[in-house]
């Protein structure tokens, strides 16, 4: 009897693997999804200028103080345009957002911020994507949740909307000190 049980073991193993694959297939596990290497690490050092003032130098120390969201955006990015009004309303609710204009043109960025309102506490200009590279950014929009001691707590890829914020991201923001 136990011998027969042993002979069934390979079949059980295959059934288990099929269950695993079915789970991945049916729940829509996204193979493109990639964790951030930066979560739990400090904001990397950088030296860039202000979008509105090319003479003003900004470093990681310019951002210290309170927790903030660091939002990577660009005028060439359609989802950023979609996201922008919601960022405006978050800012009006008192959420501190640092904007990083990513691989973009200064003139276009300034015009955009004038036309669509500016939700950003500080505007960092990153024309070559240097800060983006340090943070493992692959595109825009991307948003980092950074606490008051400059530690990155969470990274979100894609546009933020009210549903996402209420259901998931608000809790992450509120948990930061």
């Amino acid at each position: 009897m136990s011998k027969r049980l042993v002979l069934f073991m390979p079949l059980v193993a295959i059934a288990a693997m099929m269950a695993l694959f079915a789970f991945a297939l049916l729940t829509g596990v996204n193979p493109q999804e990639m964790d951030s290497a930066l979560e739990g690490r400090e904001m990397p050092a950088f030296r860039l200028t202000d979008v509105n003032d090319s003479q003003r130098t900004l470093t990681e120390e310019s951002l210290d103080g309170e927790p903030y969201l660091m939002n990577f955006w660009a005028t060439w990015c359609p989802s950023c345009k979609f996201e922008h009004p919601y960022l405006n309303s978050l800012a009006s609710e008192g959420v501190r957002i640092i904007g990083v204009n990513y691989k973009d043109d200064r003139e276009l960025a300034v015009t955009w911020l004038r036309d669509y309102a500016n939700p950003y506490d500080i505007d960092v200009f990153d024309p070559n994507g240097d800060l983006g590279f340090e943070l493992g950014v692959t595109g825009a929009p991307e948003t980092f949740f950074v606490d008051s001691s400059g530690i990155i707590r969470h990274r979100f890829q894609g546009p933020i909307d009210s549903a996402l914020w209420e259901n998931k991201l608000k809790a992450v923001y509120d948990a930061m000190e």
Binding site: M34, D35, A37, L38, E134, L135, G136
Partner: peptide, 8 residues
């Protein structure tokens, strides 16, 4: 690269 973009 791995430090910034993970082992992906």
């Amino acid at each position: 690269m791995v430090d910034r973009y993970t082992e992906f």
